[in-house]
Computed example of a mutant assay.
Amino acid sequence: MLKTTRRLALLALSGLAALVLTPHRASGTESLGGLAKPITVGSKDFTEQFILGEMYALALEAAGFTVERKLNLGGTPVAHAGLLSGEIDLYPEYTGTGLLTVLKLPSSGDPAEVYATVAREYESQFQLIWLDPAPLNNTQALAMTRTRAAELGIATISDMVAKAGELVMIGPPEFQAREDGLPGIQAVYGNFRLKAYKAVDPGLRYQGLVNGEADVAVAFGTDGEIAAFDLVLLEDDKQLFPPYQVAPVVRKDTLEANPGIAAALNALSPLLTDEVMQRLNYEVSGNRKEPAEVARTFLVEAGILKK
């Protein structure tokens, strides 16, 4: 009887010690073998995605989650496949990419309509959930220096098309053949002819533009060089290019097991405007800072992380 009493006392003490020593985990986190299962954050393979992936990971860690990073996975097909297979739990995706590249649906210029479509179809087809989209729009665009645009009186793509014969455009070679490149612009805005198209490596577009080698550059709405060089983006007045708002796309089962993910990442989305993302991208592409450093500094300034 005495041995039994001692054994029970030892078991009770062991259980109490386990409770005291077990680290705190975010409420609702899935468990595997009694341990919290990390939330795996992925990203695609370019500067903005590295920054956003780090932001998502840091915001989740600040909310108490254990996070594993799998950044720089590759292009859209690789990142999307990672979600479907469970290799990752979430990553930043663009509404226009979801609409055109993944779902292969017709383009639309209405941001709310595009978001509603991708949110509905991703959940229905893939059991994936789109969280709140950011205001930023990383859409395809055409850029000019402020001086040259004012000199020629160009503010819209229609204005550019009217003066196309005087203009040299600089951009990647594939823009001459892509459906959302020159052929797409010609189909929507009229079959114009440029003075010349200067095909270069994407990294040389802005250097050529500001050095006067071209009048118009192929751009994306959140490129860091737009703010750094005070460039003008031409208004897409006939809404050729779909909106490319960014949002976290999360596995439905992960979100159901970890409902705090939505609150942590939805708090971040409203802060990500075109101007903010241009500045952050240039910190990496222009000032050669590490994406993780840029992401952390921004989240500290925004009050999401403590110093």
Rank of each mutant, 00 (worst) to 15 (best):
G153D: 03
M160T: 05
T156P: 13
Q140D: 15
A143Y: 06
G165V: 09
M160G: 08
L136R: 11
L152C: 05
A155S: 14
A164C: 10
G165C: 08
L142R: 05
A150L: 12
T139Q: 15
I154K: 03
A149R: 01
G165F: 07
P135Q: 13
I154F: 03
D159V: 11
A149M: 01
M144F: 05
M160C: 06
M160N: 00
A134K: 03
P133E: 05
A141V: 10
Q140Y: 14
K163E: 00
L142T: 07
D159K: 01
A155K: 06
T145K: 08
A164N: 07
E151M: 03
E166Q: 15
A162V: 04
P133Y: 10
T145D: 08
A155E: 13
K163T: 01
T139S: 15
A134W: 10
T147Y: 14
N137E: 13
A143K: 03
A143I: 05
R148Y: 05
A149P: 00
A162N: 02
I154Q: 02
R148L: 10
L131S: 05
E151I: 04
A143G: 12
V161Q: 06
G153H: 02
I157H: 00
A155V: 11
A134I: 06
E151W: 03
L152N: 04
L136D: 06
S158L: 11
P133H: 09
A141Q: 10
T147I: 12
G153C: 04
T145P: 04
